[in-house]
Structures are given as structure tokens and as C-alpha cells.
Design a protein around this nucleic acid. Structure first.
Length: 496
RNA sequence: CGGGGUGUAGCGUAGCCCGGUUAUCGCGCCACGUUUGGGACGUGGAGGCCGCAGGUUCGAAUCCUGCCACCCCGACCA
């Protein structure tokens, strides 16, 4: 018998073409699609539901750590934007700019921009909101009593990317950006570190994606930051993906926007700043970490439906009988806080539904047929292992509840193992090139700390320094490229 | 933004070189019936500005020009 699952789903395998597999999966699992607007995607209800699950948990964590949500404008006057020099340098090449505020109908009936309606000052569509926020904070902060100021916003931003991919890099994307102001340098650094830890905790426990926490090198640092903390994940194809960043901005923005406060001693001082963000790119990380050739695999903590119940029946009478059992089970499972869907549609056959929910990554599927009614059982299928088991009804709620944790843990363990197997420590540049070119993955190697060496390695191998890991060994050695002294090994990889 | 490729029904495609009846096939969709433990089957039916705009021609899906979108490979970035 041919492999019905693969044939029917018609999904390119990861081995054949990882990139094509990803693109097809996003479309076929009904997560998102390309729109008529260059580089911009439509996030479809199922994809958005996953993003909402992420948002809900992150938002809860932000509030737990004392942050409040607010909303700042989409448009940023050009003059604000140009106040922080390195910030402009970093974003200038990818900004959308609003120059006019009116359209008119041309003689031939087409709609054109009204050249008379030119803005006196052009508006930048925010690629990030530091400038508009710091211009606002100036008015909010006068005294040390106003500090710390801990604000987050959920928003869309626009970066005019040349080459886009659904979720991984789009011209417009959704994210959250935290912007905080502190009285001391120490406190701001602590905040940036705290938020990196919040991200890492979320990504590991909810997304089941292991991450390396670290510091960015100078060349990879956020435009305008003194230090960028990051979390880096390793995808199945051996490429790294930056999952979140948290920046210590020093007093750069405070100085550029003249944000000062009176200290306890009555002195005027510039405040210390941080900013931190994660985006819909996390969707890409989620997909590329767990999914397989049968489709999406979702960790229970982020699955819009954790359990789907599919009835198998002949005739109206049987459906009623099964529905009674199914509805009872759904109620019991929901009472345990599980997100359960009973798919009693008569328009699709069971086999079709099985495939669909597999493609969409629903962690657990329960099938109920006449045999189960007779025997007092349920057929339980796991998405992560693709295994099936018949369970007695007495133990079903307990078993399913336990399965959620088991699946969540299994996904994380698998990802950890994959990362372990694909993290290589090298001592020489030859070895480095060989690993980067062949096996891929994370490569730990000594580096002399200079941008020149980093650039040369990047040009020769396409690998970049993902981060200087914060955990792990701090053994000194010599740079694989120059032989100069190195304080510790850093993490290299080809990256998304 | 450079190089290459693709655009024909909701999706996947044939036809394009070499212009000429009513644009091919599969999936999906609609109706009816039989079905339902891994993408059911039969019969009937609907659905096309052949990516968009110009041009050449008696005649364009087919030839020419421009534009748009998408995919792959580079440079840039989260």
C-alpha cells in the first residue's frame, strides 16, 4: 500500500527541499498566505489563533514583571527619526515614507496622488518606535519618582525588505516592543537581562523551542544600542533563527530626545533605556522546530485546539449516540481546562478529517466509532509520534491531561537532542569551514573579538556570530582565524 | 536591488517555439443518490478579462514592449 498520508497531503518533504516544505506547509496548514501587497502577508484565522496564544502568555508575563501596555502612532515625523544617528543608519534603507495626504481623480478617470497635497514634513511608517516613544517620554518623566517607566506596545511595523518569506521576513509584521526608562545604568541592564530571560522562558516552556541566551557582537547589535541580548534557536535544517532581542540602550535616546529627571540629590540626569521585542517571526521558529513531512506539529501549550474529537458513524442514529458520548467527553476535558473541538461535520469523511488535523498539527485526536461505544473505549492518536492507542473511557480524562504534558515535553526533548547533535565545537578554521559547509548547525569556536575577523569569516563561509553565549564554559583560547587570544568560544551559524 | 524562472477556473496543469472552430486534463466546488475505523463512488452541473496595460495582425493564451506579483540564487536585514 502506498503511503497515503504523504501522497494525499502532497507536501514536499524536508529532505527534498526544506525551504519549499516550509512555504507549502504555511499555506496548506492554513496559517497565512501572500497578499496582493508586495512582501505583506495575510495571517489566516488558524495562524492568527496561534499568534494570539503567544500574545496572551507573553502579555501575562510582561504584566507580571510590572509592565503596562500603551499605544503609540504608526507614523513618525522624519525629524524625530533622524535624531539618533546610529539608529537612522540602521533603518534608513528600509523605511516606507508617507509624502502626501490626498488622492484625486485624473482626467482619464484613474486615481492619482494629488501633488498639491504634499506633506510639509514626511512621515516614516515606523520600523520600530524608539524615536516617537522617547519624544513622548520626555513629557512623562521629570523626577526619579516617575521611574522606572515600564511600557509595552503590541503593534505592526514596516521594514521594506527586498526578499520576504511568510512569517520569517515580511515587509509588515506584528510584534510587541517594550520601552523602559530607568534612573540607573545598573537597573536598565537588569531590565534588559530580565526580558531576555522572560523571552527564553516563554520560548522554551510554551513553544518547546530550546534557545541559547547570549550577547550580540558589535556588528549584529541593534542600531542605537550599547548591548543587545538575544535568544537564538536552531532550526531543523541547521540554520539559526534569532527568536527575540532585548537591548540596553544606555543614554543614547535620552540624550537625543533630552529626557532628563531630577535625582534624589536634585541633579538633572539623563535616564537609562531599554527596548525589547519578539515578532510573528516566532511563528516561523515554531513551525521549523517541530513540524514534519506530514505537516504542522504544535506544542499543546500553543495549539488552538489541543484535542479534536472525530466521530465515525453510519447513519443519523449512530451519530446521535456517538455525539452524546463525544459531548460528554468534551465537557469533561474542558472542565480540566483543555481546548477541545468536536468535529461533527457531516460534510467531510473521517479520513479527510484525520489528514486535515494532522496537517494542522492538533496534538491529540480522539476517534469515536460504534466499536468504541460498544467496548467503552476511545481511539487516541498523538500528532508528535503519529501513534494510536485504544484507551478505556474510565481513564480517558486523566490520560489525555497527562498526554498534554508528555507531548509538550517530548517536543522540547526532541528539539534539545537535535540541537545537541548539531552543535559542534571546533579548534581550527579548517574544521570550522568543513562543519559550516557540510553538517551545518551551531558551531562553537574561539574568536579574537574583532569585527574584521567576524566579517572575513562571514564573507568566506556565510556563517555569522549568532551570539556570545552567557551560559557555559568561559575557557580562553586562541581565535580560529587569526590565532590571537580569545576570552571564550562564541556561537557561529548560518542564519535566517 | 542585481541574475534566473514562472503567471491559463479556487488549486495544480496542457496548449505558446510554428497565431486560425466552442482553451485541455486532474483535484476542488454545486445537485441527487449510495457511502463513512486513514483524504469514498456514481450520475449530472456550474465555473475562464489565458497576471495587467499597450502594440503588431483580418485574427493573439500564442509574437513584441512596458508594468505587476510570486518562486529560486546573491547583496541587506529581525
Amino acid at each position: 500500500m502506498p503511503n497515503l498520508q504523504l501522497m494525499a497531503k502532497n507536501l514536499t518533504s524536508r529532505e527534498d527541499d526544506y525551504s519549499k516544505w516550509y512555504n507549502e506547509l504555511v499555506i496548506k496548514a492554513d496559517l497565512a498566505e501572500n497578499s496582493g501587497v508586495r512582501g505583506c502577508m495575510v495571517i489566516k484565522p488558524y495562524g492568527y489563533a496561534i499568534w494570539e496564544m503567544m500574545q496572551a502568555e507573553l502579555d501575562r508575563k510582561f504584566k507580571e514583571t510590572g509592565h503596562q501596555n500603551a499605544y503609540f502612532p504608526l507614523f513618525i515625523p522624519k525629524s524625530y527619526f533622524s535624531k539618533e544617528a546610529s539608529h537612522v543608519d540602521g533603518f534608513a534603507k528600509e523605511c516606507a515614507v508617507v509624502t502626501h495626504y490626498r488622492l484625486k481623480t485624473a482626467d482619464d478617470g484613474s486615481v492619482i496622488v494629488d501633488e498639491d497635497a504634499k506633506l510639509e514634513e514626511e512621515l516614516i511608517v515606523r520600523p520600530t518606535s524608539e524615536t516617537i516613544i522617547w519624544d513622548t517620554y520626555r513629557k512623562w518623566i521629570q523626577s526619579y519618582r516617575d521611574l522606572p517607566l515600564l511600557i509595552n506596545q503590541w503593534a505592526n511595523v514596516v521594514r521594506w525588505e527586498m526578499r520576504t518569506r511568510l512569517f520569517l521576513r515580511t515587509a509588515e509584521f506584528l510584534w510587541q516592543e517594550g520601552h523602559t526608562a530607568h534612573a540607573t545604568e545598573k537597573e536598565a541592564i537588569a531590565e534588559a537581562e530580565q526580558m531576555m530571560n522572560v523571552y527564553a522562558e516563554f520560548v522554551e516552556t510554551h513553544m518547546a523551542v530550546p534557545v541559547v541566551k547570549g550577547l550580540k557582537t558589535e556588528s549584529e547589535r541593534f542600531a542605537g544600542a550599547l548591548e543587545t541580548y538575544c535568544i537564538e534557536a536552531l532550526m531543523q535544517d541547521g540554520k539559526a533563527l534569532q527568536a527575540g532581542t532585548s537591548h540596553f540602550l544606555g543614554q543614547n535616546f535620552a540624550k537625543a530626545f533630552d529626557v532628563k529627571f531630577a535625582s534624589k540629590e536634585g541633579k538633572q540626569e539623563h535616564v537609562w533605556a531599554t527596548s525589547w521585542g519578539v515578532s510573528t517571526r516566532l511563528m516561523g521558529a515554531l513551525i521549523m522546530t517541530h513540524s514534519d513531512d506530514n505537516g504542522l506539529v504544535l506544542p499543546p501549550k500553543l495549539a488552538p485546539h489541543q484535542v479534536v474529537i472525530v466521530p465515525i458513524y453510519r447513519g443519523e442514529e449512530q451519530l446521535e449516540q456517538i455525539s452524546e458520548v463525544a459531548n460528554g467527553l468534551m465537557k469533561d476535558l474542558r472542565a480540566k481546562g483543555l481546548r477541545v473541538k468536536y468535529d461533527n461535520r457531516d460534510t467531510q469523511k473521517p479520513g479527510w478529517k484525520f489528514n486535515q488535523y494532522e496537517l494542522q498539527g492538533v496534538p491529540v485526536r480522539i476517534a469515536i466509532g460504534p466499536r468504541d461505544i460498544e467496548n467503552g473505549t476511545f481511539e487516541v492518536a498523538r500528532r508528535d509520534t503519529l501513534s494510536k492507542e485504544v484507551m478505556p473511557k474510565e481513564a480517558i480524562v486523566e490520560n489525555i491531561t497527562a498526554l498534554m504534558d508528555e507531548i509538550q515535553n517530548n517536543l522540547f526533548d526532541k528539539a534539545i537532542n537535535h540541537r545537541k547533535e548539531n552543535t559542534t565545537t571546533v579548534e581550527t578554521y579548517d574544521e570550522f569551514k568543513k562543519v559550516i559547509k557540510g553538517k551545518g548547525g551551531f558551531v562553537l569556536a574561539h574568536w579574537d573579538g574583532t569585527t574584521e575577523t567576524e566579517d572575513r569569516i562571514k564573507n568566506e563561509t556565510k556563517a555569522t556570530i549568532r551570539c556570545i553565549p552567557l551560559d557555559g564554559d568561559n575557557e580562553s583560547g586562541t581565535c580560529i582565524f587569526t590565532g590571537k587570544p580569545s576570552a571564550r568560544k562564541v556561537l557561529f551559524a548560518k542564519a535566517y
